[in-house]
Design a protein around this nucleic acid. Structure first.
Lengths: 161, 161
DNA sequence: GTTGAAAAGAATCGACT
DNA sequence: AGTCGATTCTTTTCAAC
């Protein structure tokens, strides 16, 4: 699907404030409220916008500790095996298979270090897990809302380069 | 600040759909629209809710590639030095100082592998960076909206354990 | 593709329990 | 703390450009 500058500006406005009125967004991007609405409807239908979410301060909810855990798995382990296993844990807020020595990298949020330890223990107990390597987060430096910045897609110059 | 069950249910509803009406949320949690509004206003004032954001499919905007980069820094490097340096790159969507061999872990979103390479090159050029170790993401398994799940804070049993 | 107006619906505020 | 009702603003739809 093709996104023009207007679409990208509208998305940026909605990432900034998902509860902004269509009139407000229209004022920012130079469009009428109904024009904005029709574009937002289209962006949702095509899947560019997948929903709207409150931004929450994790520590306000008790999530004061986070960690990254590298997973080393048995040779025949499929990504879907890992996905299925880690999906059981609400503490796993991110997971991806990666290149390099480790097979996967997990991002964990927990209430304290002891809690992190318990979660890692349970994940390490999965049959396909050979070993894990954990790093506790000391301080978070950047936590961008996904999609805050918008590159020129495919053609033209990539963002900030 | 104290969050009761109602506050946590309201937050969960807003993480699910930030554009839900106060009446809808009230119906879900058993409260009137104005009671919900007053609690949401308070949650925003106290900082538990920091804003509302559209969820965007990164690939729809051209962010088709992601990577994690470990940063090894000189002895006297301060976290704020790293924060300042990486904040210049919109491609760096996450960053944290961590325990272990590396000093920091960066999460990068880019348009393609070549783009990732260019960003790493520029970050590696920072004076305090000794070396980097990169992992390209092969497939994303979990990408939870931050704060989707809500633990019992401090007291009681932590989430799912 | 766009705009503008009218009807339905939601947010907001005050008074009250 | 909570609800209810009135006013104002927004969303939504539709006709027209």
């Amino acid at each position: 699907m093709e996104l023009d500058r207007l679409d990208r500006d509208i998305i940026a406005a909605l990432v900034e404030d998902a509860r902004a009125t269509f009139a407000d967004i229209g004022h920012q991007v130079g469009l009428s409220a109904s024009a904005v609405k029709r574009r937002v409807d289209r962006l949702r239908e095509t899947g560019a916008i997948t929903g709207f979410s409150a931004r929450v301060a994790p520590q306000a909810l008790g999530w004061t500790t986070e960690a990254y855990v590298e997973l080393f798995c048995q040779g025949k382990t499929k990504p879907s095996d890992i996905a299925l296993a880690v999906a059981k844990f609400p503490e796993v807020v991110g997971a991806a298979t990666i290149t390099g020595e480790a097979d996967a990298l997990l991002h964990i949020r927990a209430t304290d270090v002891r809690h992190v330890e318990r979660v890692i223990e349970r994940i390490a107990a999965e049959s396909f897990v050979v070993r894990t390597k954990s790093s506790i987060v000391l301080s978070r430096l950047v936590d961008a809302p996904p999609g805050t910045t918008v590159p020129e897609p495919r053609n033209g110059s990539p963002a900030q380069l």
